[in-house]
Amino acid sequence: MTEEASFEESIGSLEAKAEALSQGDLPLERALAVFEEGLALYRRCHAMLAEAEQRVTKLVATADGLTEEPFDPGT
């Protein structure tokens, strides 16, 4: 798992680990390893949701082409 793994990839991997354990045919040592990988993914998914801060930008056409600048929608 890379640092850049998206939430979609992380939750997908987490559910795959849970599914792999449910199959019940892993050797004990492998099962524990899968469990610990799953636990890391579980923490990562929670952390991503908890720490996400939405970025909002606005497209601005300039002489050099399009740029994005921070945007506050106001109230």
Binding site: I11, L14, E15, K17, A18, E19, L21, S22, G24, L26, L28, A31, L32, F35, G38, L39, Y42, C45, H46, L49
Partner: peptide
């Protein structure tokens, strides 16, 4: 969804143990 997967992980590994 994340919590459900987490619970499955724990339940299954407990069974295995």
């Amino acid at each position: 969804r994340v919590n459900a997967a987490g619970r499955t992980l724990v339940r299954e590994v407990q069974d295995i143990l």
